[in-house]
Amino acid sequence: MGGFDPVLILRDPEFRGLLVRGFEMTIIVAACSWLLAISWGITLLLIRLTSSRVAGAAVAAYVTYHRNVPTLVQLMLWYFGISSLLPSAVQDWLGDHNGEVIFAVISLGLCQAAYFSEDLRSGLRSIPHGQNDAAKALGHGYISAMRFILMPQAGRNALPALINHTVSLFKNSSLAMAIGVAELTYAAREIENQSFRTFETYLIATLLYLTSSLLLMALGAWLNRRAQPAGAH
């Protein structure tokens, strides 16, 4: 097996290429799903806030489904299940154009949207009721109150949870390897299979994940601090 030598892996151009492309893919999948998740999550919240009981129930069902079915199963249902229901022309096109990445982004994004919408909803609920009263007393309409008073506070309250779930989303990108997406964990396994240097390979991948996660958490903590108004703890 030779001595412990992580630099060897990094120096080999083929392995380095695999690692870099894998890490890039991780970031692409994570970023795209995040964008999908946050926009769809906000939309879900807005739908839920409408007075329609059907809409509220639909969103609640959506959230319940995505929280109680494991992420990996959701991925499989999309990639193996739903894809088989699509017309064969679409299936062919997807097969040629990295369909697994598209399904991974859709699946992870829709799943996290449920969590994000719940975080924002909790953020909204944790605003003291007096704020709503004060807004009304000052003459704000519903939209005005939401826009200037309630949503900013909701976002601030929800920030820790949103950051937590963003880090989760980043880590969940690794699940995409089960449907064949060539992200970082997939690349690590590939390199390990070829080089038999399991320890070094895993170590590099682990360090990449760890630094990225810690960076995200640090960024989140910084955002959290900045979001607090002067004087608040």
């Binding site: 880590k171 964990t185 994940y209 760890l210 996660s213 810690l214 958490m217």
Partner: peptide, 17 residues
């Protein structure tokens, strides 16, 4: 912090190894 920063899948592979 380490466990929270690494995907579970990666931890599985470590243990597997």
């Amino acid at each position: 912090y380490t466990m929270r920063g690494i995907p579970l899948l990666m931890i599985i592979f470590w243990v597997y190894f």
